[in-house]
Structures are given as structure tokens and as C-alpha cells.
């Protein structure tokens, strides 16, 4: 009995030391708090694009792509994502086989997109809106939806549309080392070069934001998350943020990660945090 106690004490001590070590490396390798990161990146964009108000970044690349903006505004007059919103509303209102609805899972819904992504203490991981939707479905005996294409985009489009006007406010709860570690992990992902072409997310979407790659204007990281799910002409459909991540990774010739896997959820946590204060205006449309 005593022996076992001693053992668990040692285990606890090791765990504590490990945690402290992790926290230390996290802090020592970046020297910055999430709020310092956000401010530094905002400052960068303010210097790079003088005179563009911060709130404009909710419009993504059209904050500074004046040529593209005209055709974008024309498209938005007859939004290609309207059908998705309608289908999503039907999904929201149609009860599951057990008689319950999405509203039973999400009492604040349907206008609750601003609550995600968030750190879930119980699950000890970042929970995104698509993940929460599938957890709700599975808890009610329904099949989970696919994470990149298909009807998940309908329900997301409806929730995004109902949440328009709310502001991004990702919280990294204090006293939750796991939450900060998830943020740091997403940040590291963002700044890490990968793939045969050796680009990081930041290479294009911070360092070269506003420059053209061939004839495409590169979008700013600031505001990347405000308008998802997004109708892309290239896709001819509405798609999720993680589908877009997949596309980006493939373009730099890196093997993409799993949609809603830890890598992309943590990346979403970091990326959405950067947009704190920006208005949610999804679903959006892009080239």
C-alpha cells in the first residue's frame, strides 16, 4: 500500500515537472503572449496597408484588392451560398430521430458561431463548431457529417448567417495550460515552413499579403476566419475552413492533415484568435 502511494507521488511529481517543462519551453521559445502576437500582427498590417481600418479585414483580401472587390460585391448581390443557408435552416429545425433538435445541444443557437472555436476543459482539447455539431449529432444517435464537403456546410452556413454581426472573441482561459499550449501549437504550425515548396502560412498570408502570386492577390491572415463556410467559385460549392487548410497545404506540396484533427483545430484556434474583435460575416464568397 505504502509502496503504491510512493509510486503515485513520484508519478505526480514527474507529471508536474513535465508540465512545468512544457510551459517553460512554450514561453521561452516565443517570448510573447497571445495578446502580444495579435497586436504585433495588427501593427504589421497597419504599417503595410496604411489607412485601411482594422474592421475592413473582416472582408479578407477585399480589404485591399480593389479590383477584385468590385466583382465580389456584384456576386454578393445574388449570393451563391443562399441555397446552403436555406437547407441549413431546414436541418436546424428538423428533429433528429429521437425527437430532439440541434437547439437542445445549443440553447444559444442558431446565432452562436462566435462561441467557437473554444477550449473544452473536459475534453482537454479545442472544440470547433463543426466538431461540436457532430458531437451533438452523435449524442443523439445521428451519423456524423463529413468535415470538408457536403451538408455540414449547409448547417454551418445557416449558423454563420444567423451569427452575422457578432464579433470574434476567442478566449484562452487563464489557468488552463492546455489552452495556451493548443494556441502555441497552432501558432507554431502557422509559422512553420512545410512541403516541397517550403512555405509557411505566414510566408503568403503575412509576409506577402497583398502581393500577387501570378494574378491572385494574397489574402491577409487577419480576418481569415470571419467568413466561413465559404462559397468558392473554384469549388463550385460551399466548403469548410479545414477544407481550405487542406487546399493550402497541398499547394505548398505538403501532405495535408486530417480535417478536424488536432493540427487544424489548433491552427484554427490561433488563427481565429488573431481576428478577435472582427465582425463575423459568414457565409462568404470567394474566387
Amino acid at each position: 500500500m505504502k509502496k503504491i502511494l510512493v509510486k503515485t507521488k513520484i508519478q505526480k511529481l514527474t507529471a508536474c515537472l513535465l508540465l512545468a517543462g512544457m510551459a517553460f519551453t512554450a514561453v521561452s521559445s516565443v517570448f510573447a503572449s497571445p495578446e502580444q502576437d495579435r497586436k504585433s500582427i495588427i501593427e504589421y498590417f497597419e504599417t503595410r496597408f496604411v489607412g485601411i481600418p482594422l474592421s475592413e479585414y473582416a472582408n479578407g483580401v477585399y480589404a485591399y484588392d480593389t479590383v477584385g472587390r468590385e466583382s465580389w460585391e456584384a456576386i454578393e448581390e445574388f449570393p451563391p451560398y443562399e441555397i446552403a443557408i436555406e437547407k441549413g435552416q431546414t436541418m436546424w429545425e428538423t428533429p433528429f430521430a429521437n425527437g430532439k433538435t440541434y437547439k437542445d445541444c445549443f440553447p444559444d443557437g442558431p446565432a452562436f458561431a462566435d462561441q467557437y472555436p473554444r477550449w473544452d476543459k473536459k475534453q482537454a482539447k479545442v472544440v470547433t463548431l463543426p466538431l461540436a455539431i457532430n458531437q451533438c449529432r452523435e449524442a443523439n444517435g445521428e451519423k456524423p457529417l463529413k468535415y470538408k464537403k457536403g451538408s455540414i456546410n449547409d448547417i454551418l452556413a445557416y449558423i454563420a448567417y444567423e451569427s452575422r454581426g457578432k464579433k470574434t472573441h476567442v478566449v484562452i482561459p487563464e489557468g488552463e495550460p492546455g489552452a495556451l499550449a493548443a494556441y502555441e501549437d497552432g501558432k507554431k504550425f502557422f509559422f512553420t515552413r512545410r512541403g516541397q515548396l517550403n512555405f509557411s502560412c505566414a510566408t503568403c498570408h503575412i509576409q506577402n499579403a497583398g502581393n500577387r502570386i501570378r494574378s491572385d492577390n494574397l489574402s491577409p491572415a487577419l480576418g481569415h476566419t470571419t467568413h466561413f463556410p465559404v462559397y468558392r467559385s473554384k469549388w463550385g460549392a460551399v466548403g469548410t475552413l479545414h477544407r481550405r487548410f487542406t487546399g493550402c497545404n497541398k499547394q505548398v506540396r505538403a501532405k495535408p492533415f486530417k480535417a478536424q484533427g488536432e493540427e487544424y483545430r489548433n491552427l484554427e484556434y490561433f488563427l481565429t484568435y488573431l481576428s478577435n474583435g472582427l465582425e463575423l460575416n459568414g457565409p462568404g464568397s470567394r474566387k
Binding site: S29, Q36, Y44, F191, T192, Q196, I206
Partner: peptide, 20 residues
């Protein structure tokens, strides 16, 4: 190459164009 690329960035180094 992929392994070396990842290993060379094990410690995150923030780009110089971001000011803190």
C-alpha cells in the same frame, strides 16, 4: 528532406518582419 525541414524548425523562430 521533409524530416530535416521539420526538425530544423523544432524551436519556433518568429520572423523578423513582426515587431514585438
Amino acid at each position: 528532406y521533409g524530416y530535416e525541414q521539420a526538425m530544423s524548425q523544432q524551436t519556433l523562430k518568429m520572423p523578423s518582419y513582426l515587431k514585438y
